[in-house]
Design a protein around this nucleic acid. Structure first.
Length: 238
DNA sequence: AACTTGCTCAACCGCTACCGC
DNA sequence: AGCGGTAGCGGTTGAGCAAGT
């Protein structure tokens, strides 16, 4: 048995949205709010897949979207957040009001990657691009073999929190992702979170990571019952 | 002016997580 | 516990545009 299609493809429009479709979607959501995306297209009189409606609304039509170029501050914040969240675009977007995951993802791929390369930083690992790394990246062997590590004395991961070869080397970044009383002090000041605005943007609000980590409600998540004490904090040392 | 190349970003696809039964 | 439906996420694609030749 295969996957059931998300919509009847024979009777749905695809491709760019027209002004009229946008207007229909906006009017419907303004009147009824965001709800069941699957049934929304029919109710709104749109020949679109629910998924498509959701995406159009979230990425383009939402009134709280901040259009226009990214600021230098946003650039730096994205780089920092990507440093420890990786390609978790929705989480990163959650820290940038008015920006969408899709927008940030596109911006990362088209601008920031290049910016980091120009700084001599590997955008994936956030490690400095050493001569050895550069040689490796341009060697034909990269297509036939994945080395155990591209380790050099410069970029070796010393941290217990480092979860494998791809993780950046933030030995000084206290993510405090364990279930325990919040811990704020750190012997290692972070160069990535050395300004108060960035730290504040990352520090608040508190996040329940239980679901992200695969724990279902009631299974292991204690955030609700022990909100005051046993929250999973994304604590940034300063 | 015509064509090519490169870039941007909206939209799609496939997968996973979540939820209710 | 298992299943099916739905929402959400991240990777990828391709149309449209601008710049270069």
């Amino acid at each position: 048995m295969g996957r059931s299609p998300c919509c009847d493809k024979a009777h749905t429009n695809k491709g760019a949205w027209t002004k009229e479709e946008d207007q229909r979607l906006v009017s419907y959501i303004q009147a009824h709010g965001e709800g069941c995306w699957r049934s929304l297209p029919k109710a709104a009189g749109l020949m679109r897949c629910g998924k498509s409606c959701r995406l159009r609304w979230i990425n383009y039509l939402r009134p709280d979207l901040k259009r226009g170029n990214f600021t230098e501050e946003e650039d730096e914040l994205i780089i920092k957040l990507h440093g420890f969240l990786g390609n978790k675009w929705s989480l990163i977007a959650g820290r940038l009001p008015g920006r969408t995951d899709n927008e940030i993802k596109n911006y990362w791929n088209t601008h920031i990657k290049r910016k980091l390369f120009s700084r001599g930083i590997d955008p994936q690992t956030h490690h400095p691009i050493t001569a050895a790394t550069a040689a490796f990246l341009t060697s034909p062997e990269i297509f036939s073999a994945v080395p155990e590590t591209t380790d050099t004395s410069d970029n070796k991961c010393h941290s217990d929190s480092c979860s494998g070869g791809g993780s950046p080397n933030y030995v000084d970044l206290n993510l405090d992702l364990s279930i325990s009383l919040p811990y704020h002090s750190s012997p290692h000041p972070s160069p990535y979170f050395d300004d108060s605005s960035t730290a504040a943007a990352v520090r608040t609000p508190e996040i329940c990571f239980c679901r992200r980590l695969g724990f279902r409600g009631g299974e292991a998540c204690v955030c609700e019952s022990l909100k005051e004490h046993l929250v999973l904090r994304l604590a940034i040392s300063n």
